[in-house]
Amino acid sequence: MTRRGILKLIGFGFLGTLGYSFLRAIMHLSSRPPKRVYLPSSEIEKIKTKLLLGEDFILVKEGEAFLGFSRKCPHLGCKLNFDPQRNLILCPCHGSRFTPQGKYLAGPAKKNLKPLQLSLSERGVTIEITN
């Protein structure tokens, strides 16, 4: 191999390494820490339809107990909505349907809603939202 050939190879190797490190650096993102949402009892008492849609969560009142779910559809992450007439949680993008208890009914999601950890106290409910 000629001197020029070797230098070319080293040049490409250098550029490749640089490109790889650059791509690695911009593709890496550290995941967000979990978010905690606190709902005081006064807010919970306002739930009239047994279900509360938060920005990132769904809070369901089951008698005296509570269930919490992520508001992201397990299919492609669309923000879920609630249809009070049919008493169903619906995905507005691809039509997946879930019961208010988070059970999968129909559509492309094929999974139940992701449950969230709840901490109940006399003052209210704390919901831990993970990614």
Partner: peptide
């Protein structure tokens, strides 16, 4: 809202 949903679909579709 529709823009947010489109973004969420694109992100999850690519991630799949």
């Amino acid at each position: 809202e529709t823009g947010e949903l489109a973004g969420s679909i694109a992100e999850n579709l690519t991630s799949s």
